[in-house]
């Protein structure tokens, strides 16, 4: 169990390319996050929880689907930590599991309207499914 957690942590760090130790815990990422209110765990918490190996709560949290990848946190972080890349990597470790797609093709018809741009469907599949 311990080993699996550590392997996952290493995988997250590897595919994100983020070094959470660069964080100086200023909280600017969470100060800047437009989805703050929608999230249970916030960008700065992703950074320190990945660093300390507390992955389970993050993997189970809906917060991983609330990040807009708008990159405000990446842009404004004084230490170049890039929290959004870390959140994306945590989300990918979940949806890359078998049968873990968060968005399925069957869900789409109910959500469609006349004006939905293809770009939205493409983006959503990229972010929520493998």
């Amino acid at each position: 169990m311990e080993n699996k957690n550590e392997r996952r942590r290493e995988e997250i760090l590897r595919i994100s390319g983020v070094n959470p130790r660069k964080c100086m815990k200023c909280g600017k990422c969470s100060a800047t996050c437009p989805s703050y209110d929608e999230m249970e765990y916030h960008p700065h918490e992703f950074v320190y929880m990945v660093e300390s190996g507390e992955l389970a709560p993050l993997l189970e949290s809906k917060s991983i689907y609330k990040c807009l990848t708008c990159f405000a946190c990446v842009e404004r972080c004084p230490r170049g930590v890039e929290p959004a890349k870390l959140i994306e990597a945590v989300r990918l470790t979940v949806i890359r599991e078998k049968g873990a797609n968060h968005l399925k093709a069957d869900d789409i018809p109910a959500k469609l309207d006349e004006e939905i741009p293809q770009q939205l469907l493409m983006s959503a599949f990229r972010k929520y499914s493998k």
């Binding site: 929608e38 939205l120 990229r126």
Partner: peptide, 19 residues
């Protein structure tokens, strides 16, 4: 330069509306 909510419109329409 704020985000419109982007792809979250499919996941959480309320959040996209707010943004």
């Amino acid at each position: 330069n704020e985000c419109c909510g982007g792809y979250i419109a499919l996941e959480d329409a309320e959040s996209a509306k707010k943004r």
